Amino acid sequence: MIKTVFFDAAGTLFHLPRGVGWHYRDVARRFDCHLEENALSDAFRTVWKQMPTRPGSHQPRPDDDKGWWFSLVEQVLDQCRVPAEQLPRLDYFAQLYSEFTRPGIWELFPESLDVLTNLRAHYRLGVISNFDGRLRPILTNLGIIEFFDPIVISSEAGTDKPDPWIFQRALHLADATAAESLHIGDDPRADWEGAEAAGLHIFRLDRPHQTLRDLEKWMKDEGGGMKTGDSLPGAVG
């Protein structure tokens, strides 16, 4: 029987409706620097795939991954050929970094709040996310932080998904066993492979083909009973 349900955060519970490129462009405009949104989006996707894996220490990272993000932003600007004299990079990064914690930037998926409300009546809920400390104000702004205990963030845990250790850390904090826990996420490697390697049950969220309503329906119909190693019936992948 499932007793604890863990969620990934961005892409699973909420999303960025305007897209990364829009925000990079909007913040640049504050410095009277006019950049092209699509070029920024394309550069971000390219650099994101090339960024090095953050080393696993099992200890909080001293800068909450801020240095990693600064390196990413610098490379995005380099790919877009933005001269340093056109856009002061330290000042730009400082505003951009805080941009993503402002109210109204992120948006819950339409079903998220209702599903969390319904599940909380029957299960302990937690978050396991490859994010940094900005996740807490984001969850607060979205009005859902009170649903989750524990909230396990990779920059604080010192390890990113799919490393099984971050899932084991969450299980320890929740006083839960893997056999009685379920993880929901949208990333095939970080969420699906990572949680499965740690022994948790998994729900392979594949938007737009599935939403959290599919999870809720299965748990209501089946009562949360699963055998060790199962993934949800009908899940993609």
Rank of each mutant, 00 (worst) to 15 (best):
F14H: 10
A198C: 05
T101Q: 14
T46I: 07
V127A: 06
P55E: 09
W69F: 13
D32I: 05
L77H: 09
G237C: 02
L212K: 00
V236F: 08
S98T: 15
H209Y: 08
M51L: 13
D206I: 01
S112N: 06
R120D: 14
A84C: 08
K220D: 11
Q50N: 12
R102Q: 15
T46W: 03
G229S: 04
H209R: 14
F109S: 05
K66N: 06
L116E: 05
V152H: 04
R189Q: 14
H172N: 13
G56C: 11
I202T: 15
C80I: 06
H183K: 01
W22H: 15
N118E: 15
C33E: 09
R25T: 15
Q86T: 13
E156Y: 05
Y123T: 12
I144W: 10
W69P: 08
P188Y: 05
R136H: 13
R25S: 14
Q79K: 04
G21N: 01
H15Y: 15
W22S: 13
D175Q: 10
A28E: 03
A28N: 05
R120N: 14
A39M: 03
F203N: 02
V236N: 09
V5L: 14
Y97C: 06
V73K: 10
F109Q: 02
F44K: 05
D230I: 01
P17M: 08
Q168V: 03
E99S: 07
L139Y: 09
S154G: 11
R102S: 07
G19E: 08
P60R: 01
H172S: 13
V236G: 02
A176L: 10
S181T: 13
Q86D: 14
D65E: 12
P83A: 13
D230H: 08
C33S: 13
R204E: 00
I184H: 00
P88G: 02
L40Q: 04
E107N: 09
S154Y: 09
D175E: 11
P60K: 05
Y24E: 07
V47D: 06
T12P: 09
P150H: 07
D214Q: 12
I153W: 00
W106M: 11
R25H: 13
Q168H: 15
A9K: 04
F203Q: 00
E196A: 13
N118S: 15
S231G: 04
M1R: 12
L232Y: 00
A195F: 00
I202E: 01
G67V: 05
R81Q: 14
G224L: 12
M219G: 02
L77F: 08
A9M: 06
T12R: 08
G11W: 01
G237I: 04
N38W: 02
T211I: 00
W68T: 07
Q59R: 11
G56F: 03
I184L: 03
T177N: 14
N118L: 14
G104V: 07
D186T: 01
G11K: 05
E37D: 03
R30N: 09
L215K: 00
G199N: 02
R213H: 09
D160F: 08
L232W: 01
P233V: 06
R81M: 10
K49Q: 13
F6C: 11
L72H: 13
F6L: 11
W106T: 12
P62W: 03
V152M: 04
